[in-house]
Amino acid sequence: MNLLTLFCRSREFRERLGVSRERLYRLAYAWSHDPHLSDDLVQEAMAKALKNAGQLRNPKAMNTWLFSILANCWRDHFRRARPTVNVDDIVYCHEDTPEREHGQHEIVTRVRAAVGQLPLAQRQVLTLVDLEGLSYIEVAEIVDCPIGTVMSRLSRARRALKQHLLDLGPAESASPPKLKSVRLVR
């Protein structure tokens, strides 16, 4: 491999990293619901990716590799912030924001609030599958757990979302009007 090939690979890597920034940010935001924390996580993940670019063996798996780094940064963040709490047990509640208060009926706000109620581990799996369209095997690699755990976390996450979003929907909650009296007309 000559120098030119190395240079081209490095340039391509940087370009792909730049393109992935939006996706990393969206994922980080879905996990944290905090724009500034998301930005910090993405910066940290990209810095680590640049530093350890040589570890990426298969360029086609770059996104999975980047998401793994982001997941590690996310874990590290909680280790730093709450060293004695198990990450998987944390229920990260959505904070009240003016946006939430004024747009509670909007679907985006409702869904974000429902996702915000999920335990972090479930939220991670759900967003990696739903937002990034990753396979269960890839998600298992990223979050470093067996595929069965991924499936059960995803299943629990969607069940909780269903309770928050679908079971309370107007279509299901609205009962038919009760008639006080019925007169039979022959």
């Binding site: 739903d130 937002l131 969607r158 979302l161």
Partner: peptide, 23 residues
């Protein structure tokens, strides 16, 4: 159908995420 619907709702919810000013 419910599961597909939920997945669509999650995708919609994070289509445009709020960003810090410098982004």
């Amino acid at each position: 159908c419910e599961l597909t619907h939920l997945r669509g709702m999650v995708q919609l919810a994070y289509r445009d995420c709020p960003k810090p000013k410098h982004l």
